[in-house]
């Protein structure tokens, strides 16, 4: 090592040169815009794909999409869904979910239930602020899930499209599970897309 280089090294060591180097970087950042944002005054922009609270959806005419097939229950890796299905008392021969529970305390937000649903009745929304003082309110029942679905219907539709569950908004109107009529009396007209 040359004398010059050695001197430089000694000087650097004495003057804590590496500290100055680092301070340079730090000081440069004083002129940057801060990257932190002030939650909850500022909110993150949530992407359409975001897997937030689950919601049950209705068709445009207000009918429940869910037919109570229990496949979400089977698909759920944390076993947090419970569907009680039954024959719809108002619409004979039609299956529906008389009760539907999602235990949000157990839910892992994997989105498998949405993927499994054969009628796209479930969707995830951008809702993530549902913390509460009472753990019991985190057992989402059918009413609550439909409420979320009504309120965040746009999120839900965007989610389904973003996750390749639906092609476009038009398609979502078409699925309609067709139940057979009773031999005793007509219970519903055959759907258009089937006739």
């Amino acid at each position: 090592m040359s004398v010059g280089a050695l001197t430089k090294k000694i000087l650097q060591a004495m003057l804590f040169h590496e500290i100055w180097d680092a301070m340079k970087v730090t000081f440069k950042h004083m002129f940057h815009r801060p990257i932190t944002f002030q939650y909850p005054r500022e909110q993150r922009t949530i992407p359409d794909t975001h897997r937030g609270a689950l919601a049950l959806l209705r068709y445009d005419d207000g009918r429940e999409r869910c037919v109570g097939c229990d496949l979400c229950e089977a698909a759920c890796p944390s076993r947090c869904i419970k569907v009680v299905s039954a024959e719809d008392p108002s619409l004979p021969l039609q299956r529906y979910a008389s009760e539907f529970y999602i235990d949000i305390t157990k839910c892992v937000f994997c989105g498998y239930c949405v993927e499994a649903c054969p009628v796209n009745a479930l969707a995830m929304t951008k809702l993530y602020e549902f913390s509460t003082h009472d753990k019991r309110t985190l057992l989402f029942d059918k009413t609550r899930l439909y409420q979320i679905g009504e309120r965040y219907i746009e999120d839900g539709k965007k989610y389904l499209i973003a996750h390749h569950q639906e092609k476009d908004d038009q398609m979502s109107r078409e699925y309609r599970y067709y139940f057979p009529q009773s031999v005793l009396k007509a219970t519903q007209a055959p759907p258009k897309h089937l006739s």
Partner: peptide, 17 residues
């Protein structure tokens, strides 16, 4: 293809779809 046969619910215990 859909057959669109009405469901026979007349029996007491069995439904025929």
């Amino acid at each position: 293809k859909q057959k669109l046969i009405p469901e026979d619910t007349r029996s007491l215990v069995l439904d025929f779809n």
